[in-house]
Nucleic acid binder design. Structure first.
Lengths: 287, 287
DNA sequence: AAACTAGGGTCAGAAAAAGTGAGTCATTCC
DNA sequence: GGAATGACTCACTTTTTCTGACCCTAGTTT
């Protein structure tokens, strides 16, 4: 038995909150890199946090392998408790936010959806519900609603939440782009690709297509180039229908393919607060 | 309605954990100064944290008055959720600690008890339970067990936990200190006082006594001086009985007064982990 | 087998956060 | 009126956190 009659370090200093969170996220997501993404920090930072914690506790929480990390029995044993605590904490934060600003709704969505689908519809929302203030954050991936401060997620997804619009894909181009009568003609022209939908051409063609042509990281940019006559873009119905209706884009072929991932909206748990609920319903009713 | 199509600050950055904790503690204890004590930081640090949080949230959580702070309705509304979340988090930390070091027991106690009562008994514990490792932290006040990393509290208290020893008080002095036959003689000599028991002399005499004589902030130090013949000390039975038995202290008067605050031990919740439970039982059985 | 990839670990330096301590101010208590 | 309480402010220091570049290992691909 060893005693430490410590008056010097008057406290065994309790464990740092941020390190605990780093552990919980890493354990839940199964890796430091993934945790770094959710926490918006580099993997090294997460690694350091976990190491700090392990040293403070005096026992390893992860077993390191060259391919990643695995929870130790100790880590596995305590993870659920931490997950629950942090879930509750996040819920408390959500409550705080919604009580402090009951008429503000934070929406997370794809950059392309934000710009091409949501933004044009906002004036109508303002007309219908002028007291609601909407803030939109563009993200490449749907965030973990349980842990992030968003009220609604609006993304293309197979099953979550309520459907807002179906996703049909088909080539589109500028009205005066030139003659395209047969899909085979596509081999002659620039087929524009967006990084978030790398497989669009294959999905539409139903076969392997060597995607030749420029690649953009923002769909809205790709669309802009298409309007300028730079090539043929794989259009997503919700994102291009206004241009089709306005005649600023045309659809050279009749063939449309429905993807399994519709534009859908969801919130944390079934229950969303008042304003968020209203916006969600409004989104679902949108044409 | 105002929109912010933010790509620039890609995230509404979630609320800082430490600020949330500062809020919770301040709200629970009803002040920043008290919170600072529990958190082991200065009041200014707590104040700054809360301010950060209020700015991030965009609404005040406390109403400041000259005499302290009062929760706003918003603060009152969300406090329970935060308290619960932080309680759970602390419980998870406790679990982690106990699983990582199942045979370590952290005891918080008064400096005087640590040195004069607990320390002499530890060899016996080592004999009985050699696998248990005890760490002792001396604190002036019983810590909030729900939030601090201690397994057991050993303090003088009226009601909490299990009784370990009764607290009787009576003057003691070195064997050759001189003749003291009547309490009135005390007026001639130095009556040593300890800061944590400022009222001892009054409690024993049953009347106002102008406590003349040196004041020590550590009882063990006051006792040391008493052994050296520097004066008369108000003895607490559990802390001086060994010296009485050994003859290194004598009790000049027969009068002993029992205080309502016995030496008691308690742990978080009724249930303590294995090793903590064993130590607690051993303490309760101690003579 | 060589190259590639995914994931961690480490380090030095930079940036941000947290903390302190002294001094201020406004009440309330005596 | 004076002391005590409790919070705020400000300049400054200390600690924590983060990054970015680099290394390492073990599967995977070519």
């Amino acid at each position: 038995m060893s005693h430490s009659l410590s008056i010097a370090p008057p406290r065994p200093k309790d464990l740092p909150l941020n390190a605990l969170r780093a552990f919980e996220v890493s354990a839940r997501l199964g890796g430091f890199a993934a945790a770094g993404q959710e926490l918006n920090v580099s993997p090294g930072a997460v690694s350091a946090h976990v190491k700090t914690l392990e040293e403070a506790v005096g026992a390893p929480l992860f077993q390191r392998t060259a391919r990643g990390v695995v929870l130790t029995p100790l880590g596995r044993r305590v993870l659920p408790e931490f997950s629950r605590a942090f879930d509750d904490l996040a819920a408390a934060v959500r409550l705080l936010r919604s009580e402090a600003a009951p008429n503000t709704v934070h929406i997370a969505t794809l950059p392309s959806v934000a710009q091409l689908w949501l933004s044009p519809r906002l004036p109508e929302l303002r007309r219908i519900a002028p007291e609601i203030s909407v803030s939109i954050t563009a993200l490449e991936e749907p965030p973990n609603l349980k842990r992030t401060p968003y009220d609604l997620c609006l993304f293309f997804d197979e099953s979550r939440g309520q459907q807002v619009a179906e996703d049909w894909i088909f080539p589109v181009c500028a009205p005066g782009f030139g003659t395209l009568t047969d899909p085979a003609d596509l081999r002659r022209v620039a087929c524009i690709t967006d990084t978030t939908w790398r497989d669009d051409w294959q999905d539409w063609a139903g076969q392997d297509v060597a995607a030749q042509g420029p690649v953009y990281s923002l769909y809205a940019l790709a669309l802009e180039e298409t309007l300028n006559g730079a090539g043929v873009l794989m259009g997503h119905l919700p994102l291009v229908e206004r241009h089709l209706a306005a005649g600023t884009l045309r659809e050279p072929f009749g063939r449309r393919v429905k993807t399994p991932r519709a534009l859908r909206v969801w919130s944390v748990r079934p229950t969303a607060s008042g304003a968020a609920r209203r916006v969600m319903d409004w989104l679902s009713d949108s044409r």
